[in-house]
Write a protein that binds this DNA or RNA. Sequence first.
DNA 1: CAATCCGGTTTCATATTGCAACCCTATTGC
DNA 2: GCAATAGGGTTGCAATATGAAACCGGATTG
Lengths: 158, 158
Amino acid sequence: MARKRFDDSSCSVARALNEVGDWWSLLIVLQAMYGTRRFVDFQQELGIARNILVDRLCRLVDNEVLRKVDVGEHGPRFEYRLTDKGRDLFPVVIALRQWGDRYNPSPDQPPLDLRDRPSGRPIRQLEVQDAEGKPLTVRDVFVAEDNNEAPSNGKKQA
Amino acid sequence: MARKRFDDSSCSVARALNEVGDWWSLLIVLQAMYGTRRFVDFQQELGIARNILVDRLCRLVDNEVLRKVDVGEHGPRFEYRLTDKGRDLFPVVIALRQWGDRYNPSPDQPPLDLRDRPSGRPIRQLEVQDAEGKPLTVRDVFVAEDNNEAPSNGKKQA
DNA sequence: CAATCCGGTTTCATATTGCAACCCTATTGC
DNA sequence: GCAATAGGGTTGCAATATGAAACCGGATTG
């Protein structure tokens, strides 16, 4: 049967996963962050089937994660470029990468060494922080109740 | 055909997606962060099919994101609890939530108001930062070359 | 002793995925 | 001027994954 959709879920995580929660979409976005823009390049670098790539690119364009730009001076040539919405997936990708590096390091290779251009020093480990910038774990965070709602039994964890 | 696997990919994002990159796994982890531990509760709160839930829970246990604990004083009762590895998906979930809140807000409801317990103030927007804590965009970050490798044509973006 | 809860397994119809082959336009190489 | 090749797809098919619902067996409850 059809995959279940969460377009109208009240949970924003579910709605986000609806757009980039499949096996390929985030990898396409990642590849775009590396600078890839052309259909054939995505296809070769990811090793994705062409029909699936068409489908994912269209979906990402529909969801405004990518923009399809016609660069066809002579003949049909297109580029798929990240939008601001797509670029704002950067923290998601970095969070996943750091988690993967920590718990599933590659046996053959060291993790990618990401640095910032101005200083040339490695970027920071991403962490959830409070208003002052102090790190928070799952257990430190709770969902504040909406005052207009009926009060619930107790504070839920994040 | 079978879904393509990335177990041995050199990319840690791909390897991470291999473990939690399907439609349900991250939602199960999220639900676990809310405090859900029992099979029936996951099933009812997520509306997931029972056979799929069994499969995902097993996969997550295999990957050490969850631990299956026998709490059967009388009769078979189990709890699925987050491991440290699972809890460390917190930044991933928060990053997705903030992205979803920003670009796909629910028309009916305000986004969840997450606060930290000690101060009661909203948590920070997650951001990729340099060593000093200054925010970085995709374009600020590059992949430092491994010195042992042959030098490549140019610095790639993150 | 029947009804219910918990944690599954089984069956079946439908979707999704991956591969490979094909297509059309446009640019090359010669 | 014509074949070869590149870009960006589409189509058909077989292998899988998903979802709904039925079934199951032990334990507890009424």
